[in-house]
Design a binder for these strands. Structure first.
Lengths: 343, 343
DNA sequence: TCCGTAAGTTTACGCGCGTAAATTTTTTAT
DNA sequence: ATAAAAAATTTACGCGCGTAAACTTACGGA
């Protein structure tokens, strides 16, 4: 690396012996030039330190390589993890991910989309808040920018949806619980903001019916994203009231379960499988912390990697095809039962 | 809002009756124009939907309004929370935060800085990995872009450092534990990557000595950011070996404590304050999940809000002053004891 | 009221790169 | 070998805004 400073593409063209328009093509898409010239350019890049000015590059381009990634809550390790996996895939495919979290707020979610718009993104991957989302602006945005939903579906919006198969995963868990003990009650939020929660409720009801058991819904009051707190409060109530017709509770997600476990512990309940235990608890999502609850949480592991990969690939394929949406397709991945000590 | 589409600043100048250079000034800094013109422009913005092209804006500007924010691990709720708080402050001060996580990897950390460089940021707020960080590139970067460190200090690097006062907080906790029971052992990683860990170890040793007790260090093997796993494994070992000269363990951070609690639980230990308990455990950081451990974790709460505010304000003040660093200053905030049920 | 200064306008140029068109060179196919 | 196709070069222009200079207008204090 000679430390010669290269100011701009013009200068780099001079020292590399490649014309500027060809360099422009190369930086936009390395394989759009002949292999031999690609090699020459890369050789020159070894010797001279140059990278095109990001702003000049994007200002006048028809389509940038920016891909927006918006998740409901970056402080939730579940979303942090899947967002990171998606970022990796996007980067590997030669695009530039821009990650934003909505902090559980519909206003911030819309604001994020507005901010992304000024980046002229080639497309965005959106995990929407769900019920709380402000649909009209999102729909307007989808009409302008290729948008693929993941994790949470909004019917009919965007180019498609990639998520997990709640029907299968809840069915799997209900079956397991019924096979190994009493049929589960279902702990969820009364008015959940996440569409998956509705799917899971329905799946629970269906699975119980199918096995000939009476379903029992425990619906916790509360809004927002403080799921542990909501699970905790409802847990205290359930233990105190002792009206539960079963010793098994399936939670709509792990964070509710974490709160429930905490409440049960404080109330002196013993949780788990053994004969000395008075309660079984199961969750859903395989939250990073569910391994360390007391006892460790039996749950469903979503296929993070598959969802991330499929999301990124679907969107980028659509973008590169350049064609508008012909058919909105939904892809669901099955969950896997993770057996630990809580149920 | 008339739906007339405004293509560029030229057009907006025409409809608003303000000259383009003045508009340019306004968009760069709203209070740099006279109050009356500011009002006129804002009135026009109500009627016409226009925002300057981000790329054209930054391409030729001496200094952008971009502020990079880099944290070691976005999937750690602790960092997600403080990063978000910082973002809010930056935005409120008229700048544009760009958040990146380093995924615990020194390579990614450097890569993040490189990527930020192409954004021509006015400055960056960096919470470095610590010992694992690749110092040379960081130092080179600090020389080019005003950089303020937070959370973890790297001696002498950047414009300064904002963090928490480990000496005070650990002292506080050791005092509390000694006053209410047996003096604590200290659980930490053998070779921690975080500089705070070293400070906390030293603070523990000093506090114990000051109270006339013999310190006892438990140093867990393990690298990386899987603190819960490391705490869990070491917890199993400690409980099994029974060589601990005390019934009280202070953990270098909450994530280690979460792992330890999990291990102790699985080993049938009772943890907490009561006479029937065989172990007391305390943590540090007031991790969002420490409220829901079993039992809930007694810990030290860092002053997130103060650290975030001070970081943002210090950096932006330096940037707006335009002067290079005259004196590198370090600001430490005291921690607060959060008493729960584990100790 | 007047004047000095701060603020706005006009004019003009440049930033670094995208992109189109016309031309030349290289590669591939026959 | 030759023609056709593909790729690279040359030339030229434009994107939208930053910014400097010279000038004109508005403001505030005595």
């Amino acid at each position: 690396m000679t430390n010669k400073k290269i100011k701009n593409m013009e200068e780099f063209a001079a020292v590399s012996g490649i014309s500027r328009p060809t360099l422009s093509k190369f930086f936009n898409d390395p394989i759009s030039v002949r292999a031999s010239t690609k090699a020459r350019i890369e050789a020159a890049l070894e010797r001279y330190d140059f990278q095109p000015n990001l702003y000049a590059m994007n200002q006048n381009r028809r389509l940038t390589k920016n891909i927006g990634v918006v998740v409901p809550h970056l402080a939730d390790p579940f979303f942090a993890k899947i967002a990171h996996t998606i970022e990796d895939h996007i980067q590997a495919m030669g695009y530039r991910p821009v990650l934003l979290g909505s902090q559980g707020s519909p206003e911030v979610e819309i604001q994020n989309l507005e901010n992304l718009r000024s980046l002229k993104p080639a497309g965005i991957l959106l995990a929407p808040l769900g019920r709380a989302s402000d649909l009209d602006p999102i729909e307007a945005f989808c009409a302008e920018v290729p948008t693929l939903l993941f994790d949470a579906n909004l019917e009919g919006l965007g180019e498609g949806f990639v998520g997990s198969n709640n029907d299968q995963s809840i069915g799997l868990m209900v079956n397991y619980l019924c096979r190994t003990g009493e049929p589960p009650a279902f702990l969820e939020m009364k008015s959940p903001s996440n569409p998956n929660a509705y799917k899971r409720r329905t799946a629970y009801l269906r699975a119980m019916e199918h096995l000939g058991h009476s379903p029992y819904l425990i619906q916790a009051e509360g809004e927002g994203w403080e799921f542990e707190e909501i699970g905790f409060r409802e847990g205290l109530r359930v233990v105190r009231d002792k009206t539960l017709p079963t010793d098994t509770i399936l939670c709509s997600n792990d964070r509710l379960a974490i709160g429930l476990l905490s409440a049960a512990f404080e109330s002196g309940q013993r949780i788990g499988l053994g004969p000395e235990c008075s309660l079984r608890v199961a969750g859903h999502d395989d939250h990073p912390f569910s391994r360390y609850t007391c006892p460790s949480l039996t749950t469903i592991s979503q296929d993070y990697e598959a969802i991330a990969k499929q999301s990124a690939e679907t969107l980028l394929t659509r973008i590169e095809a350049g064609s508008p949406v012909d058919s909105r397709q939904e892809t669901l991945f099955d969950g896997r039962l993770v057996m630990r000590h809580s149920a």
